[in-house]
Design a binder for these strands. Structure first.
Lengths: 203, 203, 203, 203
DNA sequence: TACTAAGCGAGACGGTACGTCACGTCTTTTA
DNA sequence: TAAAAGACGTGACGTACCGTCTCGCTTAGTA
């Protein structure tokens, strides 16, 4: 009894091909958008047979996710927010760069692409959240936890909700383009969120 | 300066075909998902020529948007939130149904579809916001304005941001599936947002 | 009991439309060839509704035949070959202009078109032969009859075959483009045909 | 100077597909006629993707020509007319079967089809002449050459014209359906043609 | 040092859907 | 009531990619 699934041997995998596929995918998704991105074009641009892509990735979205992650491979390791004691300043220091990234076409386009694909592929959603967003959200949560310990936030503040209170409005505006996404907006969101999260009776 | 685009005469348009196309589109997007939805299938299901679709809609997304809007055609007219004087209760009364809708597969699937398409078609984004989201957001804004007049909110509260503070976290959780989307969550968001928006020195 | 066939009233027919349809058809068949000739294009060029064409002609080929015949409307009446007594010269005098016509793109293109359509429409074949070719062939036959009476042809010469012996090689070369179609060739064919048809024992 | 045309690699070509396409084309052209023959139908009948047809043939006509030629693939090799010494009998022996073929619907229909297409595609005309007609015409020419050597034809007889004198009348009658195409007619044409071609002063 | 077996590039294959074109019919408005 | 205008259902066009499948051709690891 043997499986008919072809399970290729990863030790024989061509690192050269892997790299050029990811580069090609990243370039192309920026150039033509996710909807018009094709496996054939990736293969052609990478100088690679189509089969080599189908052998190692289950879907177009998976290739793009890998391509996206490969970009930030250097910034691996745990993300850690600054802890200057000033929670407002520290949060602004993380939301402002987030805004910058969302506005940078090099991230904007493929990130939208990933979210698109994620909508019809829950596996991918989980991967995106886990590998792409969670590190930053966890770091933010950790900084909030520290502030809560310092009595700067209400003792019963739900930090999961707190994080969504911070990032939700940003993504809302980014996704729906209802208004320009600016650093000023990030600051405003931080300030409002903190008013919501501070201990009762203070201000 | 005149366009060479053929612009069909809307007075000759077949209402019968329009309706069956929208119905077919709505059914199919729920059945097969947006990615596998094809113009050919819509035309076939609607008993209509493909050209009739291409004649009146610029893209698949536009058809689905119209199909989506046609569902709620009865609830036309201005949306108006209740104004009981209790701003917290009134906001919960609008966010809870929003959560319900986002969880209802009949809305969830095509709405995700629309957002997907919108990401590569700014025209569509604008239409979605304007025709689908803006009415509700404007109603919310109006209720907040009334509360601000009543001194329940800070006099300088930015109502555009306020709306995003309310809906942003909801969409964030819906889109990224980071946690279950519940009415309890909607309530929490309302409570937090109001703490952020109340006049300083009060609580 | 009434037929469902719509039989339009010819007395109400617009002469203006008829003329512009035939002109448009003739022009277009020369410009784009028969295969790419469309009813829509004829209607558009003629400034006429499509229905007006469908009302009065049963097929594209019929329109083109009419268009072709309308060109030569002036040269109506009986064609008559010269009868100088010199049968060879007289035949050359008719075959040479035939060659000229077959080479003239104004006749070549639509005539090929008609023959094409005729291959799948025996009614049209008959019409073409009768209205277009038969007059010339009959005139030729008449001249041969005169020559036979004068003892220049064998008494038992079959004039139908004789005519085909004259025109067959011309059309063969025109149709298959095996070699250039020239007046010299027409002369040669006449000379050979006459050798075949002369009374036995002479030369 | 290199063409940007994608020219597929013939060594990778699927013989299986080629065969089934030609069979399907041959069957269909007989069943529905050339005008209603579609590439889609050929592909469907052959169990083949449309692209496979477009990859290897430039036009519908080219497919039908190949299909037509494939029928007689067995009778490959040089066609050679019998040379009994009796030129009249030998020519009749070739023109009679030609008449038979032209009357046989299995050949009549696709052959008309080819001639139709050829009228708007000179490349195809050349191919038809070269691959379909030339072998027979060349064999005929060769037999006439032999007769000329034997003094049965005039020493200056132009054999190209001679061939047209033989086949031209046949095709004329076949194409225009002016009269029934019979073996008797073929015989008559041979007899007349030979009278035209014999040395002067004989009979 | 050869042999084997994998991954590789290339690209032909059977398919599906694309967006366009023209068909022939039908309906509406104008003269 | 014919004619212009043109929307309609239909169906084929020729193209683009899909995901699968052979082909030689490297390129290891085994014999």
């Amino acid at each position: 009894m043997s499986s008919s699934e072809r399970t290729p041997d990863p030790t024989r995998r061509s690192e050269r091909s892997r790299r050029s596929i990811l580069s090609a995918a990243f370039e192309l998704v920026s150039e033509v958008g996710y909807g018009k991105l094709t496996i054939e074009a990736i293969a052609a641009r990478a100088g690679v047979g189509k089969q080599t892509i189908y052998r190692w990735w289950p879907s177009k979205g998976a290739v793009v996710l890998d391509a996206f992650l490969a970009r930030g491979e250097s910034e691996q390791g745990e993300i850690r927010l600054p802890d200057t004691g000033d929670i407002e300043a520290d949060l602004k220091a993380v939301l402002r760069p987030t805004v910058e990234e969302l506005k940078d076409p090099r991230y904007d386009v493929p990130f939208r692409a990933l979210l698109i694909e994620a909508q019809t592929d829950p596996t991918l959603t989980a991967q995106i959240v886990e590998r792409l967003l969670e590190p930053q959200m966890e770091a933010t949560r950790e900084r909030l936890r520290s502030a809560r310990r310092a009595g700067q936030l209400a003792g019963d503040a739900d930090l999961d909700v707190a994080v969504e209170l911070l990032f939700g409005p940003l993504y809302h505006r980014w996704l729906l383009r209802t208004a320009p996404l600016t650093e000023r907006y990030a600051d405003t969101v931080v300030e409002l969120a903190l008013r919501a999260l501070r201990p009762a009776g203070r201000d």
